[in-house]
Design a protein around this nucleic acid. Sequence first.
RNA 1: GCUCGGGUGGUGGAAUAGGUAGACACGCAAGACUUAAAAUCUUGUUCCCCUAAAAGAGAGUGCGGGUUCGAUUCCCGCCCCGAGUACCA
Length: 926
Amino acid sequence: MKMYHPQEIECKWQKYWEDQKSYHTSIASDKPKYYILDMFPYPSGEGLHVGHLVGYIATDIIARYKRSKGYAVLHPMGFDAFGLPAEQYAIQTGQHPAITTANNIQRYQQQLHKLGLSYDWDRAITTTDPQYYKWTQWIFRQLFNSWYDIRLQKARPIAALITIFQQQGNHQVDAYCDKSPKLFTAQEWQQMNEEAQQTCLLAYRLAFLEDTLVNWCPELGTVLANEEVKDGFSERGGHPVVRKQMKQWSLRITAYADRLLAGLQKINWPTSTKEMQRNWIGKSTGAEIQFTTTGENTQHTITAFTTRPDTLFGVTFLVLAPEHPLATTLCTPAYATAATQYITTVINRSERERLTTAHKATGVFTGVYAVHPFTQQPIPIWISDYVLANYGTGAIMGVPAHDSRDYTFATQFQLPITQVIADPSDSELPYETKEGVLMHSDFLNGLSVQAATQTMLEKLAALKLGTPKTTYRLRNAIFSRQRYWGEPFPIYYKNTLPHSLPTEELPMALPSLDSYKPTETGEPPLGRALDWKTKDGYPLELNTMPGWAGSSWYFFRYMDPHNRSQFVSPEAESYWQAVDLYVGGAEHTTGHLLYARFWTKFLHDLGYVTVDEPFQQMIHQGMMQSKSNFVYRIKGTKQFVSYHLREQYETTAMHVATALVDKDNVLQLEAFQNWRPDLKDATFILEEDGQYICGSETEKMSKSKFNAITPDDVINQYGADTLRLYTMFLGPLEQAKLWDMHGIEGVHRFLIKTWRLFYPTSGVPFSTDSPDEAAQKIIHQTIKKIGEDIQRYSFNTAVSNLMICVNDLTALGCRHRHVLGKFLVLLAPFAPHLAEELWQYALGNEASILAAPFPEYDEAYLQESSCEYPIAINGKVRTKIVFPLTMTQEQIETAAIAHPDITKWLEGKTIQKIVVVPQKMVNIVV
RNA sequence: GCUCGGGUGGUGGAAUAGGUAGACACGCAAGACUUAAAAUCUUGUUCCCCUAAAAGAGAGUGCGGGUUCGAUUCCCGCCCCGAGUACCA
């Protein structure tokens, strides 16, 4: 009898599939297409752990299933390889990040290869490859040379804008641009020199230079995007982040805010993810209202944005953001010193400090009043950092009765509070609900919130005091990084104005440097490059692009990865279209997933792609958790105290490798001392029984918590098929799962049982007779279930159903070649190596199982001739009776109440009703 | 605080359209094989009461209500856990 040795057969078939080019994908116009994509991984130095694999295994099962259903399946993999860790390593060691990256990629590929994943590796792409980033630069160049036409709701080439400027100036242009662009006539435009013209155009480009307040991370020496900063610290590395004014490249994603919002309705994504994008875009409608200051000499106009114009009569103060242009100039001399001091401290405060003091209201009075547009009452103007400079207009009208933040501020500084909406429940102020009737509001009195808003907007418009306005929380995306390991910008400067390099000069490759640190003068690392200038001697851009540049369009490149003349050919793009199913982490919701949608819409506008949403359906795999262990170090010493005694000392908890801890959390002391050089002379305070007990917690699996399980160890012990199956068997794809090795024996035993079904101890040969009813029923039921389970991504139940099938066929002693062959095709997407081995060697098929079509089930074999009915009395099941399906409802009723197990419950009671649900159950109501 | 998930045996989980709660697997217990152990196989395993055992009775899907002949599933109110978000006017 042959034994199941996964390590032998898995290597053999992996090589076979590679040699046969089994996963080669091409356009097959006679077949329907299916594009299934995993999120672009960053190849970190730590390699993969089993948590990363959940998604890869799931997509592989679907890809294999879809192929066996006759689809042309695009299932590629590649690497998003620019990024900070390789560069930090380069700064420390001097090793070029390209070498680090290549090593890491190789390790990833080996790990993925050992899992038997069916990627078409000929289509693999890497963002750091100049032949790839050539096109990232090319797309950036298109963004630089485009503007957004609001009337047509699409991006257009900058040449079209120049034509408009030549003919009519920019007074009539309806475009997304800088806040107040310089206005000019056609004649003025024509008289401008090139420099002046370029300055004007820059205000309209979709990729533009801008002085902005950025998240500066001194430790990393670079700026970070909003979503790369968590609680005032950098997401990578956890370094502090401060706010700083810098000239940066930005992308005008805000032009697409409305389309990014509307597009969510067309795509099949988790509601939570859509909701998060909606909140991130943060569309709010309201009005901008003008307030004029009182004062003898100078009168200023302050424009405030509000979503509640209906509460205008409740305004008791105005607040300016500290960064507001008027904040420094408005104050009366008596208040100016205090105000300037406040503004300086607040602006220099780091993001971190702002957050920790967020709950406290701070601010200063300017000494100046504005006039209420209707009551003509004076309204004090304050400055406070609870108003954000870059949202709305940077100025708000304070309505303390109906806004909690304004309420806190008013209470703090004893400003008056005027209630203007009657609260039906009469609860405490502030009353923020949009229900109720207006009061103390002159011409609005008695109106509902909705009607009052409408009336107020009309009145403001008529008196030219305000206009309806929609704002977005979404900011333009800062696109410069002061780093080496990223795509260089295809940009050079002429008299400090940016120009794009001609496309023939792309790719613009990264230069080699002697060091990857910033220059002594604080310039980015590219400042060290010799001859970093164009042929004509113009200086090139020193910043590089952020990590998300390459991942914003990679899904198109897989369609046509070797194209030298286009980023994707129209033929390939129109065949593969959007990704049908995208599987990856939810943590990319407000970053990658938003930027990829933005770039797709932009490329669509310019006519380069037909789709305008990149990912039709999206699923997030749940995170993998694992038990992590802690030891407790007495502060300032190398002494470690056991779990139960830790409270007697002042200790810090420290993660310890779970490999050094047994299942009862007992630490292996010697192994711990040898774990790291600095622990060599560690000493311990032990429990009474002489053991060191570690603390334990369930946490997200990660190398830094020392609780990661690498696939390599599992594969060495059980084989890739067992790992694939077990990862799916743990629970639903989208749910967080706890990895523990206990259950893996169960799925491994299942594969051994499967093996024995084909190589039984009895040695009975396979039969080619037509299978018996019982075997047919089992296999057809399983075909139905597996198909349904895969289609609803329920892989854990699919594995269960495969187990049930093997259990049943084993009990039956099934030897039918026909039935067993069908079973292998069902098993193949989950455990491809074992299925191929048994298909070719046990059953003696000549062709690969990959060519076998997914079996169809025959309804005829699923028909039952009878059904077991649970018989319930008042909903409680009392007995079960088998009835033939030919029985009528009346016959079932009569039989049920005549059954001895039932009659004893009916004694002395009257039957009120009998419910018979065909093929389900019977309920007797007494 | 807000938004979105989720609470089912000792454990992971199943129940796809309101119809037998606990599939499948782990663990545990007993037995077979073995000199013995491991491996393998067989049987049992929601809890509680009763019983020598069988049989039987009751409770039960976070808690409290509701709709229904019937609710893990639908509705209302609460509690707990997890994730995301944070002055966006």
